[in-house]
């Protein structure tokens, strides 16, 4: 992605909030659905909000509620939900070259979701070192609070909301693929990266359509990485 250092008007955290606004289109409808499903599964409004506040990981929250409601053994619930989040392992290391030694980064890692990682991976290299903590705080806090607020809304009035405004569930979530697209397309600046990214995206679509949404991201990413190495080796051997 573009590594040119960018300056901006206003404070870094305000810029972070501004950059994270497109995330709301994806976060709020999903959070409303989670709130609604959690309450329907027997959790109280307060419990539902606490789940979103402290776990803060979409897919594993849905799984937690569904498995707990079906009476699955709790040790299995814990293992399965953590397995779904295992893909987050590569996020922190990828961002670490852009983060300084400030201790405030430690609690902020709670906010390192898929979307915040994608956003930070594209934006942090463009920001001056002293602006990164503020930028990340603004972006991550907006995402976290919108997730909690959406959950509360869903738990309290989710049924009525989705009935009255079906467009919330239908159209706003498109903000997420559009955001990921805008974040990844600048990487397609040569044949090697274009093919790598295209294969990762296409594999992810196929895996999800085939009914493997939880392994789609890590598996598709590995497919893309394998192609990258294969093409690079071929090119290096051809150059000898």
């Amino acid at each position: 992605m573009n590594t040119t250092t960018q300056t901006f008007a206003g404070t870094p955290w305000k810029q972070g909030i501004k950059d994270a606004i497109p995330l709301l289109g994806g976060y709020i409808p999903v959070a409303i659905s989670f709130g609604l499903i959690s309450v329907q599964s027997g959790f109280s409004v307060l419990e539902t909000i606490l789940i979103s506040t402290f776990i803060y990981a979409g897919a594993s929250q849905f799984l937690f509620v569904a498995m707990a409601a079906s009476g699955a053994p709790l040790w299995l619930v814990v293992i399965m939900t953590l397995l779904i989040n295992a893909r987050h392992i590569v996020y922190g290391p990828n961002l670490s070259p852009y983060l300084n030694h400030d201790k405030k980064w430690l609690p902020l890692m709670h906010g390192l979701t898929d979307q915040i990682f994608a956003l930070a991976h594209a934006r942090l290299p463009q920001l001056p070192d002293q602006a990164r903590l503020g930028w990340y705080t603004g972006a991550a806090m907006l995402a976290w609070l919108s997730w909690i607020a959406g959950t509360a809304l869903g738990a309290i009035a989710g049924g009525e909301l989705t009935q009255r405004w079906p467009l919330i569930n239908d159209i706003l979530p498109f903000a997420l693929p559009a955001l990921f697209f805008v974040l990844i397309v600048p990487r397609c600046n040569n044949r090697l990266w274009t093919l790598t990214i295209a294969l990762s995206a296409v594999s992810a679509v196929i895996l999800k359509v085939l009914g493997y949404p939880n392994v789609a991201i890590p598996l598709a990413a590995l497919c893309g990485a394998a192609l990258f190495y294969a093409l690079k080796n071929q090119r290096d051997m051809g150059g000898r």
Binding site: M1, R87, V90, Y91, D114, Q115, F117, A118, H121, A122, P177, F180, F181, L183, I184, R187, W193, T196, I197, A198, S200, A201, S203, A204, A216, I217, P218, L219, A220, A221, L222, G224, A225, F228
Partner: peptide, 8 residues
């Protein structure tokens, strides 16, 4: 980047 492409 491949993780972001997969999320896309």
């Amino acid at each position: 980047p491949t993780m972001i492409a997969a999320m896309f």
